[in-house]
Design a protein around this nucleic acid. Structure first.
Lengths: 192, 192
DNA sequence: CACCAACCGGAATGTGAGTTCCGTTTCACG
DNA sequence: CGTGAAACGGAACTCACATTCCGGTTGGTG
């Protein structure tokens, strides 16, 4: 349950501890984004300029560290989904969100790993509505379907799969043009 | 360069060696199909009823074993692609092949891992035309495009990504109905 | 400014995998 | 059969990690 840096109950962290925590987070965000779950804790520690013990103290587990980062990212995506749902036509909202997810996932390997189900427990994250990406997708999808913009026979997990396919990391160095083509294909496929 | 069981030059293998090689292959095929690259060499050895040394002797590396199995599977897929290309209308051939690939990949986790680029070197396999899945896809795709059945702005790697998306293994226990829905979406997306 | 609890670094430990090694067993040829 | 080369099993080894531990250091409070 790794929480914020400035905890209120339980007397505040020492200044150097807060600094180190922030350095670890920053390094981990950068490295996870670049290479996904494959980065080692040693690399993160080195990159942050701290010892491995310091990483483990702030985040008891590699998974906890990864989790903290992914949760923040997911929270952001959920917010954007809600904003789009509020500000756009149902169909546009859905397709813009789709493009957004693909862009984010295609740029951030760690997020892509998480979306693919590696090392991030979606079920548990869904406890809190602000981290329930599937609920956000369901919401934006069902509106788009009700408006007739999206075929009725797909569900949220299909959308997740479509996103995953568009990301298609791993091979032939994820290029932005290919990603956009995939979004086009997926959008045409999902339309009524 | 793991080759066939009945080698002609270099005097034949001893009978027990051939038997064990076959047992290892059989066990590995079954386990890789069920759980992908995640199975350990120990498990394969146990399941085959041999020691780990025997596995390593026949296939110097886990990757070599995996490779041998995937190559056979890919060879089969390439053959089917050619057959479809010969016997069907260009458009039908392409969409049937798409459905076939998704079905095979969705059923065989090892193949899915390989298609996703894990532990199988597509580049090297492409040396031999009978194992060059990308060439087969290019062929069947370009015919479908020429006939007007498939949009012209996609390439073979896009098709690979689409297939990957349809497979979308890892989470919510790969169910056949979802896979078919994905194929429908993908097909509509790829159509002109 | 002194003290001590909190914190630090990084070596040591634990774990889980693939691969190697070697004493033992088995095959097949004479 | 008898014998030697081939193959076997599986314990030991290696390697790459994540995680723990502990002697040394530092920050903040009285």
């Amino acid at each position: 349950m790794g929480e914020e840096s400035g905890r209120s109950t339980e007397r505040p962290m020492r200044a150097d501890a807060q600094r180190n925590r922030a350095k670890v987070l920053e390094a981990a965000i950068e490295l996870f984004a670049a290479r996904g779950l494959a980065v080692s804790v040693h690399e993160i520690a080195d990159h942050a300029g701290v010892g491995t013990g310091t990483v483990s103290r702030h985040f008891p587990t590699k998974e906890a560290l990864f989790d903290a980062i992914v949760r923040a990212r997911v929270e952001q995506l959920v917010r954007q989904a809600r904003r789009l749902a509020a500000e756009r036509e149902p169909g546009d909202a859905f397709f813009e969100f789709l493009a957004l997810m693909v862009e984010e996932g295609g740029t951030d390997r760690g997020l892509a790993d998480a979306l693919a189900g590696a090392g991030f427990d979606v079920e548990r994250a869904a406890t809190d509505p602000d981290h329930d990406l599937d609920a956000a997708i369901r919401e934006i999808l069902s509106r788009a379907q009700a408006s007739g913009a999206v075929r009725g026979d797909v569900d949220a997990t299909d959308v997740r799969s479509v996103i995953e396919g568009c990301i298609a990391r791993e091979r032939h160095g994820q290029d932005a043009a290919a990603r956009r083509r995939m979004v086009t294909i997926a959008s045409q496929g999902l339309r009524s």
